[in-house]
């Protein structure tokens, strides 16, 4: 338990710092790399929570596909590699809004889940295994699963149709 806790805090601090850099960085490529750091961190947190299948999927899909897509987007739009100002003039109101939201959420989360503990044990590992996930996915959530398949096809064809040069 202690080892997982130490791992959590190290990863959490890295994630938080990287997340802040994503929204403040003055360089597009750096922002993308910081985003990848957050995504890998989240994947590690899922492994700590013994959700192995989700953790691995997060890693492959986000780090493998989404992050590469972002970098690809940055390359093809020939974004400048040198720092540039990407912020609008609402920085201070934005900061106020998000800090207020954070304060409210943290206060209410502590109120709602103050002393609750997650017990990491073997039965939790069984829940996150791919056979359990697959069973639930194809028994209970088969309609959304099929809907997602159509959604991916639509997204693919839509993206090609709109990005194609003609």
């Amino acid at each position: 338990m202690i080892a997982q806790n130490i791992a959590f805090w190290i990863i959490a601090v890295v994630m938080a710092a990287a997340a802040v850099r994503v929204v403040t960085s003055r360089n597009l490529v750096h922002a993308a790399l910081f985003l990848i750091t957050v995504l890998i961190g989240a994947s590690a947190q899922f492994i700590i929570l013994l959700a192995e299948f989700v953790g691995v999927t997060q890693f492959f899909l986000y780090v493998g596909a989404v992050a590469v897509l972002f970098l690809f987007g940055i390359i093809v739009t020939r974004a400048p590699m040198q720092p540039a100002d990407y912020d609008n003039d609402q920085r201070w109101p934005a900061l106020a809004v998000s800090l207020l939201l954070l304060g409210v959420l943290v206060a209410l989360l502590i109120d709602a889940f103050g002393h609750q503990e997650i017990e990491l044990s073997d039965d939790l590992l069984a829940i996150g295994r791919s056979d359990a996930v697959g069973n639930s996915l194809f028994r209970t959530f088969v309609v959304p699963f099929e809907v997602v398949s159509m959604l991916l096809l639509a997204a693919l064809i839509g993206a090609v149709a709109i990005a194609r040069r003609d």
């Binding site: 309609v143 959304p144 809907v147 997602v148 959604l151 639509a154 997204a155 839509g158």
Partner: peptide, 12 residues
């Protein structure tokens, strides 16, 4: 989950 997925298929 179904509501979320259906909403995304409507939107995307």
């Amino acid at each position: 989950i179904s509501i979320f997925v259906a909403l995304e298929l409507i939107s995307i």
